[in-house]
Write a protein that binds this DNA or RNA. Structure first.
Lengths: 318, 318
DNA sequence: CTTATTTATACTCAATTTGAGCATAATCTA
DNA sequence: TAGATTATGCTCAAATTGAGTATAAATAAG
């Protein structure tokens, strides 16, 4: 038990970092903070202090309150990262990092600096088709790396959908991790013992972040993409009233893929998650009906979320 | 950042606890350890020691190696629990508990004591239909509690599938948490300040465990049930060669529900995850073909896991 | 004010998937 | 040799899904 093995346990510091996402201006954004003397930005974060924080979520909410003034809709723990060497702390303290995902409605998250998440993960946005950088930069660079690290080939194949495997938009973290291991993101060079400096890749692959925050952001995006499909979390990114078009755009934003309009509408209407109201027009074209999320119903249905799917998979042979 | 807020951070101890599951003897079992002077059992666990453990998974594997001799197939981090008051440590140390799920093949996990997981969560096993204890004991008790705690009503409805909501086998943790909060499991009485002792419920609801280990076990079961549906993890519970019947029984074991045999077969064969081999007979009846898991293929397909589903949902009205 | 443009919404249709069975096959037991 | 028992093949209708076509209701342009 704890009392037996407790002997030499070193000083541990737990940091709680939160990726706060919102959908705004046709972009998937997250709250990014700047620090003096550091070009890389960071997520809101702070230490977990058991004396003051009865739970980690209470701690999280404190740091979010103090560092950014945002009303959080959905909050969810992502993962606890504890690898040594991926997180340098000033002192000798060992740092363990607990990542959280939080969703905010644009209305409740007005002020402050918000960055486009896809500026940090440009290879994840497939809304206008497969990003060129994949074939032009990433895959060739990975191939070069694989020549030295053949054991990673299967992971690359799976994560990047090569050789017959298909791209799975949920593998955001797996892709980032591989790019990190291959030394293709700035953080890799930064974390490696400053002695042998890895060659920085000419066209930087997305913006870097402080500490392990980009890893947490990647985890957040992957988790959100996955969760969307079985729980109605998308509504935590939407305002009170919204058109189906807006709902679809937000969904596409998160998934990073385009969806078939009529079928999306059919899916949503059938799901029972939304109820019609009056209507608005604003923008061009025929005015669209405004819907609202049916809280009442949240429990009635299989909670299946929006079973969006990309498109009929090519029925290749078998 | 950390250096700023680091001031008074109290001494934190991180415990790594692992629910190791296997399918054996027609039961879903987990490795349960006994301690002298404690009737409640525990999971293998030990402190995370950053000096010795480069990653938490390395720490986990050390404790598992030392405490139980089991070859782990699949290992997955579940959740980090840090609520104060749910975990008493002998000393003044604040304990944070990181839970892991591990799967083992019965062949690689022979020795030691294995307990039936459903002895700890009897209300989760629906293979022979809805367990009587739900209507006889649990729901009436929850109702009594709800009379004092009306704000929990919606959660109970969702977790226990009442009032039109339907039972979702994945909500294992949510159900356990509610039973805990309602004081219906032994751990609740144990953790509450010994002063006011909660009345223990006459027929104990499943076996209790030490510390927060039953909570971790609940998380493990919920996660596994969920993951089964989108990743082929079930094969990490199977031996090298298996009949489709065995695969189905293991799946039913995990999900806690019965499945339609012919459709399960169709699903599995079409998935491409298995390949036929020779055949065995042993048991009564027509001998069944033996299959093996197709590792090669792991990446080819959408990785969709076994999209098992309970049965056609009643198309109630809308 | 008439037409093009734009977006929303309704419907269709075929392919595929799913839920439920029935039917037959291949063993073992009595 | 007749069950009993389990495996496997096949059918069939209902539901879901992918991909369009068609129509409606606005705004913007001339």
């Amino acid at each position: 038990m704890s009392d037996i093995n407790t002997t030499d346990s070193t000083d541990i510091l737990i940091d709680i970092s939160t990726a706060i996402l919102r959908a705004h201006d046709g972009a998937l954004q997250f709250r990014a903070l700047e620090d003096n003397g550091n070009t890389a930005k960071r997520l809101p974060f702070g230490p977990f202090m058991p004396d003051r924080h009865r739970t980690m979520e209470i701690g999280l909410r404190q740091w979010v309150r103090e560092q950014v003034g945002v009303d959080l809709a959905h909050v969810e723990q992502l993962y606890t990262f504890a690898d040594q060497g991926r997180y340098k702390s000033g002192e000798g303290r060992h740092v363990v990092s607990v990542g959280y995902l939080a969703l905010a409605r644009a209305e409740d998250a007005a002020g402050g600096a918000w960055d486009n998440l896809y500026d940090y993960f440009p290879w994840e946005d497939w809304r206008d088709g497969r990003p060129d950088m994949l074939d032009d930069i990433i895959l060739p660079a990975l191939d070069k790396w694989l020549a030295q690290n053949d054991e990673a080939r299967a992971r690359v194949r799976l994560a990047f959908g090569r050789d017959g495997a298909q791209w799975d938009e949920e593998f955001v973290l797996e892709r980032y991790e591989l790019l990190y291991e291959a030394g293709l993101v700035e953080e890799a060079a930064r974390d490696s013992d400053s002695g042998k400096k890895q060659e920085p890749v000419p066209p930087a692959l997305g913006q870097a972040m402080q500490l392990d925050h980009r890893r947490i952001a990647a985890t957040a995006l992957g988790r959100l993409r996955s969760k969307l499909k079985y729980r109605p979390v998308i509504f935590d990114l939407m305002p009170d009233r919204f058109t189906l078009r807006a709902l679809q755009q937000t969904t596409e934003l998160v998934l990073g893929t385009a969806l078939h309009k009529q079928n999306f509408r059919r899916l949503v209407e059938k799901s029972g998650f939304v109820a019609a109201t009056g209507k608005t027009s604003r923008a061009r074209g025929r005015p669209a009906e405004l819907f609202r999320f049916r809280h009442e119903n949240r429990a009635d249905r299989p909670l299946s979320g929006l079973r969006v799917s990309g498109g009929r998979k090519s029925s290749d042979g078998k």
